[in-house]
Design a protein around this nucleic acid. Structure first.
Length: 276
DNA sequence: CGTTGAACCTGTTTGC
DNA sequence: TGCAAACAGGTTCAAC
């Protein structure tokens, strides 16, 4: 569920409520959620959450105790959420991890994930770095237009697949890939290396603006997503194409939005979105 | 290297 | 009403 904007919204809440707090308890309801470092979980008790960051769609808590720092990296997958007490109503069934906090305005942090496509990793510095390096490309907000145009313009694959490829650009998922391509006027099946310089620049700018607008609107709530305090996103009200099959193209071109099935669903305007 | 399909899971919606 | 199929924000892996 959470793509980059939703992850950024979650980070904002976590930073305001749990940064600097101390972990006084850790209950792991489903051990198979922890993919690496399960045996190190007792270490985290008594550690202080010193930093909260994001790599692509994954969230990293830096936990310090004495002179040592270890890391908890959480992937949310399609349906994962971090929740504070008070927003767990109707979501008690799939809480897989419960963290008890001290010196924080919230008493607990819950990891909820009904489909269990998400995972949690407990890493030391070295293993975290290894993981981040092999897993994630550059963050879209850290990319210059030169780097972005080079990455897309040198690839032979379909541009939508390139936007979704976390090894190249980290953080874009199916909702935002569709919205970004619509706004840039580029067909999802256009080949990266066949895009004009002007198209590449439009793609760069729409990537920046769509993601930033989505964050400003609290992310997109299609079904499950909410911030840790239970707040829903509002950016879905501004979607132009995602799940808008057969509705008129918002640009007023008198065509309707189409859906291409196969791999992941693509939603686009066949008239406004070009292949080069 | 790029593409496709399946797999991993549960829950909800859709269609017969 | 009932049941099966399709579909969902993600990632990985194997096969071609």
């Amino acid at each position: 569920m959470p793509e980059l904007p939703e992850t950024e919204v979650i980070l904002d809440h976590l930073r305001k409520k749990i940064l600097g707090s101390t972990i006084s308890g850790l209950r792991i309801e489903r051990k198979d959620i922890i993919r690496t470092g399960l045996s190190s979980w007792p270490w985290y008790i008594g550690s202080q959450i010193r930093d909260i960051s994001r790599n692509g769609k994954s969230i990293v808590l830096s936990c310090a105790k004495g002179s040592k720092t270890r890391y908890l990296l959480a992937e949310l997958g399609m349906t994962g959420l971090f929740l504070f007490p008070g927003s767990t109503l109707g979501r008690t069934k799939h809480i897989h991890i419960a963290i008890t906090l001290e010196h924080a305005p919230v008493s607990h942090l819950y990891y909820w994930n009904p489909r269990r496509f998400g995972r949690v990793y407990l890493f030391d510095r070295q293993h975290l770095d290894q993981f981040l390096q092999r897993r994630f490309g550059v963050d879209p907000f850290a990319m210059t237009h030169e780097a972005f145009c080079l990455t897309i313009g040198q690839s032979r694959g379909r541009v939508k697949a390139l936007l979704l490829n976390q090894h190249k650009i980290a953080g874009i998922g199916n909702i935002y890939a569709n919205e970004i391509l619509y706004r840039a006027g580029i067909h999802p099946h256009a080949k990266g290396c066949r895009l004009s310089k002007a198209s590449l620049m439009r793609l760069y700018h729409s990537t920046q603006t769509v993601l930033r607008e989505a964050i400003a609107h609290g992310g997109s709530t299609i079904r499950d997503f909410c911030a840790p305090d239970g707040t829903s996103g509002r950016f879905q009200e501004h979607h132009a194409v995602y799940q808008k099959t057969a509705t008129p193209c918002p640009r007023g071109c008198a065509t309707t939005i189409q859906r291409l099935i196969r791999e992941r669903s693509s939603f686009f305007c066949p008239r406004c979105q070009k292949r080069n």
